[in-house]
């Protein structure tokens, strides 16, 4: 879980890096997405990425089933305060994010892959002009933030990297990272939406 998670975390950073270019210029974005579509390293990484996703999802589901079984009878009264919400809802945020990813693939990756679009920027801009789409997009990234806020430091803990001195730093980094992701992607959506209005 932690290894695949860390891998996906690094992918998100690249993804944000590409997307953010669309705020500045259409050409820059198109150039970046073109590079992503044609560079052979990126193309081969794509398959590894897909495997990473599948491993993360399948493993997550298996673990969740195992963990549910381990409890047996449920408690009648439960006070959840002893663990943060994000950590208790990884499977829920995870499944919702998965649904979003499927939607996302249908909207962007499939048409781009099949070469149905000439101008990637136009495709994206069109999608972002729809307020419903923007809202779904924002909600998804809030969920992603929730998922990451636990996932980031948890990945380090699981791989054994914990130390009274460094764990606070890792936690700080984790916070910065999930805020960057949530705010970054959300900001793009919002900017693009308002741009479509003018």
């Amino acid at each position: 879980m932690s290894l695949s998670g860390l891998f996906l975390i690094s992918f998100l950073l690249v993804h944000l890096g590409v997307n953010i270019t669309m705020i500045w210029s259409k050409d820059l974005f198109n150039a970046a997405s073109h590079f992503m579509e044609t560079n052979w390293i990126i193309q081969s990484m794509q398959w590894i990425l897909a495997i990473g996703f599948i491993v993360h999802i399948v493993y997550g589901i298996i673990l969740t089933i195992q963990n549910r079984r381990a409890r047996g009878v449920q408690y009648a009264v439960k006070k959840g305060g002893s663990a943060p919400l994000s950590s208790r809802t990884m499977i829920h945020s995870g499944i919702l994010i998965l649904l979003f990813i499927l939607l996302h693939l249908r909207d962007f990756l499939v048409p781009m892959k099949l070469g149905l679009v000439d101008d990637n920027y136009e495709l994206v801009a069109a999608k972002f002009s729809n307020p419903v789409f923007v809202i779904i997009y924002i909600v998804a990234f809030i969920l992603l933030g929730l998922h990451l806020s636990h996932g980031f430091q948890s990945a380090f803990q699981s791989s054994g990297a914990a130390h009274s001195k460094y764990t606070p730093i890792i936690k700080g980094l984790g916070k910065a990272y999930f805020l960057l992701m949530s705010l970054g992607f959300t900001a793009i959506a919002v900017v693009m939406y308002f741009r479509s209005l003018t």
Partner: peptide, 30 residues
Amino acid sequence: GFGNCSNTGACEAECPKEISLENIARLNRE
């Protein structure tokens, strides 16, 4: 048949002897 650790930290918070989560990281390392 115990479940897996997903690092929620509930155990550390409820442990009557306040055993630290750092121990789980050390176990993972080992």
